[in-house]
């Protein structure tokens, strides 16, 4: 078991954002997490990456209980993420965005850096080379020296994924990677996600509210609504689940056709 979360509850003051959430992730899975707006998807992601601490419940990664750890310790344990509202290091170059994330596993310490030791120079060359490789995966090598904020929206999303991969995760969580993209861009992005999943055999959780996109991409889908898990299983099962239709598909379709 790569990750398991149990009874995760998060209250913000009197508001219950999530109650009794649980998931267990096996190595190699590509899981879709869907739910209508305000269902608690981003709360799940923030909890599973240590950005916020659960009010109750626990998170176990590779057999170690890391509940309450800081976000950077989560990342060190192999959990990486992207953000729904892109959070690039805007004023740094595309390459620097990726190499900053490579520091976690490959960065030299203070003394070798200041003393200009050969080990620091080797580490730097290694990080730059690896940075170009990662950018290459997303066709971004030509943009390496562009300022991150100057890239088009879709490209920025790809830089975010490349940057997350630079932390060498065992589990990658993507928060609405297709948000704000047109259908063609979305299709290309889905191809990239599939490629990353297959070629790097990386375990992933993709958060989306676009049902069809998730159904095409994932073999396992978890649906949440109002802070609770509604269904968890194969896309076909989930789509047939009356509770899901009721809470999610039903209302959305009704509204769409109205």
């Amino acid at each position: 078991m790569l990750l398991s979360a149990d009874g995760l509850t998060k209250r913000f003051g009197g508001v219950v954002a999530l109650s009794g959430y649980g998931i267990s992730v096996q190595s190699g899975e590509l899981i879709g997490l869907i739910g209508p707006n305000g269902a608690g998807k981003t709360t799940v992601l923030n909890l599973l990456t240590g950005v916020i601490r659960p009010t109750e419940g626990r998170i176990v990664v590779s057999g170690q209980d890391i509940t309450g750890w800081r976000a950077d310790r989560f990342t060190a344990r192999g959990i990486a993420r992207t953000f729904q509202n892109i959070r690039l290091f805007r004023d740094l170059s595309v390459l620097e965005n990726v190499t900053a994330a490579l520091h976690l596993r490959h960065g030299p310490g203070l003394a070798p850096t200041v003393l200009a030791l050969p080990s620091a120079r080797r580490a730097e060359h290694g990080m730059v080379a690896r940075g170009y490789e990662l950018l290459g995966l997303f066709d971004l090598a030509d943009q390496a020296h562009a300022r991150a904020a100057d890239l088009p929206y879709g490209e920025q999303r790809k830089v975010e994924i490349a940057r997350a991969l630079a932390t060498e995760p065992k589990l990658l969580l993507l928060d609405e990677p297709a948000a704000g993209m047109n259908p063609a861009e979305t299709r290309r992005l889905m191809d990239v996600i599939r490629q990353v999943h297959e070629t790097l055999s990386l375990t992933m959780i993709v958060v989306e509210h676009d049902m069809s996109l998730i159904m095409n991409l994932c073999r396992r889908v978890q649906v949440i609504n109002r802070g609770e898990v509604l269904a968890d299983g194969a896309p076909a099962e989930v789509q047939a689940d009356p509770a899901v239709i009721e809470a999610y598909l039903g209302t959305r379709r009704a509204r769409a056709h109205a």
């Binding site: 990456t49 950077d72 959070r87 620097e96 994330a101 596993r105 932390t167």
Partner: peptide, 18 residues
């Protein structure tokens, strides 16, 4: 670079292991 990353976006820097 990790210092500048922190300057640019604290939450993202933390999630990249800084």
């Amino acid at each position: 670079r990790t210092m500048m990353a922190m300057r640019e976006n604290e939450m993202a820097a933390a999630c990249m292991g800084v």
